[in-house]
Amino acid sequence: MKLGLIISMVFHSTLLAFALLSLTTAKALKPIEVKSIPMEIVDISELTKLKAGVKKAPAKKETKKKDKKPIAKEIQEKKKKKKPAPKRAVQPVAEKQEPVPIKKPEAQKKKVEPVKKKVAKKPKPKPKKKAKPKPKPKAKIVKKKRKKKKFNEDKIAALLNKVPDSGPTSSKLPDLPGAKKVKGNPRGKHLKMSINEIDAFRRRVSRCWNPPVGGLGAEELSVKLRIKLNKDGTLKGQPRVLNRGSSSFHRAAADSAARAVWQCQPYNLPGAKYDTWQDMILNFNPRDMLRG
């Protein structure tokens, strides 16, 4: 018995010791982080239809480069601006390490301010002039910064270009001499309400619509209504019924549709796309209600 007990104790203690040692060193099982990816359903027409812009602008290629460059630059910024530019990164490393002294921040501050102004007006020529009186390394940094700033702007532009909703840029972009031009047609005005926006609008109108469902058939109750909206989302003038119907059902349905539109205003629609929703056609048909 005693021997057995001893053996058992020894065996268990070794097992416990082993477990303590081995399990503590074992890597903790970490759950894989699943990052949510923001997604929007984009209509193919966003890519195929004419957007506002300049015909000659090499839009597609540039935007691709823009996409890549800014990311590289962000990484550089994180590394405390060690590299001047993504392609020539290897050479400037030594130069950058030298100008670390205390004076630099002041110089940087001074330079940073003009850079902003310059970038806004004329990015390339001005910074060079201002950079001259200051020591070389600083000048280099300034150049780098300028480039970075410039790139950042490009990044914003690129981001904006990705978003199909960036309507107003069409009028602003050609006015800026330094700004990169977006591929498109000067007359192109293709903008579209997103599916989410349409759906939100539809839900709002549905909530206010009280159709006379006692009609003989849903066909008599279908109403095609044209509405015009002000920028603040309120109705501009009376809604106009586009389809004709002789029956009293149609007349009642048309009135109920108009009442719904009046009742639910103002509508919260994206101001940037005013041109797309200022004049809309609404097809009222209670077919989904009559199914059940």
């Binding site: 539809r202 719904a260 809309m280």
Partner: peptide, 20 residues
């Protein structure tokens, strides 16, 4: 005329039955 926007057409197929 400059190329106009495609007029948005929205179908409203459900309403809210309630007393007027």
């Amino acid at each position: 005329s400059s190329p106009s926007y495609a007029q948005v057409e929205i179908d409203i197929t459900e309403g809210n039955v309630q007393a007027i």
